[in-house]
Amino acid sequence: MSDMILYFIVQTGFVILAAPLVNGIIKKIKALSQKRTGAPVLQMYYDLFKLFKKTSVVSDVSSWIFRVTPYIVFATAVAAAMIVPVTTLIKPVWNTGDVILLVYILALGRFFMMLAALDTGSTFGGMGASREAMISALIEPSILVSLITVGLIAKSTAVFPIMTFMQTVQNPLIHPVYLMIFCALLIVIIAETSRIPVDDPSTHLELTMVHEAMLLEYSGRSLALMELAAAIKQLVFITLLVNLFLPHDQLIGIHGIAAIGISLLIYLAKVFIAALLIGIVEVNTVKLRLFSIPNLAALSFILSFIGFLQFFAFGG
C-alpha cells in the first residue's frame, strides 16, 4: 500500500511540479546562446500562478467541448505520467502501463484539443487542428515501431518491464539498434512537444504556428491547464527517452528510501541533460516548412525500421 502511494505521489506530484522547470531550462539555454539574460528559470511557474487566478474569456460560439477540453487534456497528460516511471526502484502497483496505451491515451487528449480548436469557429483553430492532424498521423507509426522494437527485445510491451530490462543493458547507446531507436524517438519527441524544427513554441504568427494556434482562444485557468499539460507531456517523453537509453538504477548499490532519493536526483540530472540537448537542437536549427515535416517523419520512421531490421530480421 505504501508502495502504491509512493508511486502515485512520485509519478504525479513530482512530474507535475518538475514539468514547467524543463521549459524554463530550455528557454534559459536559448537566451544564453543569444547573449541575453532571459527570463528566470522559474518564469513558467509565475505565469501559471497568474493565469490560474485570472478570469477566462469563453467564445460565445463555443460549446461544452471547449470547456471540458482543458481538463481532459490535463488528465490524459497526468495519466501518461502515471504510465512512464521516473525510477525503476518503485514498483508500479497498477499493471496497466503499456506503450500502446500510452500512445492512445495521449491521442484522447489530442482528439479533444483538435475539436476544441474547431469549436470556436476561428480560422486559426482550424488551421492548427488541421496541421496537428497531419503531423500526428505522420509521427505515429515511428513512435509505435520504435517503442515496440525495444519492447520486443525486452519481451514485453509494458513500460515498466521494458525499463527494468534496459537497466541491465550496458551503455545502450553504443549498440546500433538502440542508437537508431534513440534518434528516431528524439525526432518523435521534438514533433510531439511542438518544438523547433517542427513547430515553434514562441511564435504567434499564423504562417508557422501549430500547437499555439489550437490554444489561441484559451485564456485564464483553461490556458494554464493546457500549458501545464503540454509541459507534462514533454517531461513524460523526456523521461521515456532518458530512462530507456541512459539507464542509471543499476549503478546505485543500496536499497530503500535513500536509493530512491539518489535515483530521483540522477533522474533530474538526466532530464537536465535532455533539456540541454533539446535546447541546443532548437538553437541550431530553423523551423522547417510545414511540408518538409514529412521528410523528418520519414527519417524517424526509417531509423526505427532499420533498428528493427537490424535486430529481428537479420539478428543482432
Binding site: 478570469t55 477566462s56 474569456v57 469563453v58 467564445s59 460565445d60 460560439v61 469557429g121 485564464g220
Partner: peptide, 8 residues
C-alpha cells in the same frame, strides 16, 4: 470566473 465574448 469566465466571461462570454466573441471569438477573436
Amino acid at each position: 470566473k469566465a466571461r462570454k465574448y466573441g471569438t477573436w
